[in-house]
Design a binder for these strands. Structure first.
Length: 265
DNA sequence: AATAGTCACAACCGCCGAGGT
DNA sequence: TACCTCGGCGGTTGTGACTAT
């Protein structure tokens, strides 16, 4: 049995969005919020696929987005994050306020790749061009498995655990990006995870803590393991330089999905 | 001025995981 | 447990703009 299509393609508009469609979508979301994307087009009077509406909103219409003109700092941050995370554009985007995964992905493919090649760096391996050594990203890694998780798999939490119960995966990244302090903390599975107690509140589940400390020392306390949220990939931004920015963003972009995923330890 | 080639980016496609029944 | 829906993600494509010839 095949998957049902996300929309009736015969009766939906495709291609570039018109100004009127944008306005309808904005007006609807402002009035009713982001609800069920599948039913949104009909409710908003749009002849569009729900996924198309979602993409349009997230990538172009959502307030607080920057457009174009990546700064040199953003370039370098993207390169470093890509070296660590690979093509996890949504994770990379969450480190760049106002940028979307699609925008970063396009920017990578059109600008940064060329820039790295110009430097003699293999944009995929983040090593010397034509050199298989120093491969940072395993091309065969299954989708959704960042470097840190692989590391945790290879090196069980019984080794290299920090005092707070987290393992620190830093050496590889220290070598690759000496100026970038990326501390990936991974908490060991906690016993309650396998024995949930329904009446005692939210179950404690294994939390993969991707606290990539961009500029923050690894010893900084992380409270990820205490959270009841399930299936969390956590990381935080360079707090020192972004504290102020976050305050502003909280006012401007309250409730936006970026913040729902970014965790300031 | 016309044409071909290249670039940039918006949009689409298909897959996956989570959650509900 | 199996199936379904939905949201989200990464890869790819389509197309308009720009540049070179």
């Amino acid at each position: 049995m095949g998957r049902s299509p996300c929309c009736e393609k015969a009766h939906t508009n495709r291609g570039a969005w018109t100004k009127e469609e944008d306005e309808r979508l904005i007006a609807y979301i402002k009035g009713y919020g982001e609800g069920c994307w599948r039913s949104l087009p009909k409710a908003a009077g749009l002849l569009r696929c729900g996924k198309s509406c979602r993409l349009r909103w997230i990538n172009y219409l959502r307030p607080g987005l920057k457009r174009g003109n990546f700064t040199e700092e953003e370039d370098e941050l993207i390169i470093k994050l890509h070296g660590l995370l690979g093509n996890k554009w949504s994770l990379i985007a969450s480190q760049l306020p106002g940028r979307t995964d699609n925008e970063i992905k396009n920017y990578w493919n059109t600008h940064i790749k060329r820039k790295l090649i110009g430097r003699g760096v293999d944009p995929r391996a983040h090593g010397p061009a034509n050199d298989g050594a120093g491969l940072a990203i395993n091309p065969s890694r299954p989708r959704g498995v960042p470097v840190a998780v692989d590391e945790a798999t290879v090196n069980p939490p019984s080794t290299g655990l920090a005092e707070d119960g987290h393992s620190s995966v830093t050496s590889m990244d220290d070598e690759r990006c000496p100026d970038l302090n990326l501390d990936l903390s991974i908490s060991p599975p906690c016993s309650e995870a396998t024995e949930p107690t329904p009446m005692s509140g939210p179950p404690c589940v294994p939390v993969i803590c991707l606290c990539s400390n961009l500029g923050l020392q690894a010893s900084e306390a992380c409270s990820c393991q205490a959270t009841p949220i399930r299936h969390v990939l956590r990381y935080h931004r360079s707090l020192e330089e972004e504290e102020e920015e976050e305050e502003e963003e909280e006012e401007e972009e309250e409730g936006q999905h970026i913040d729902s995923f970014v965790h300031g330890c």
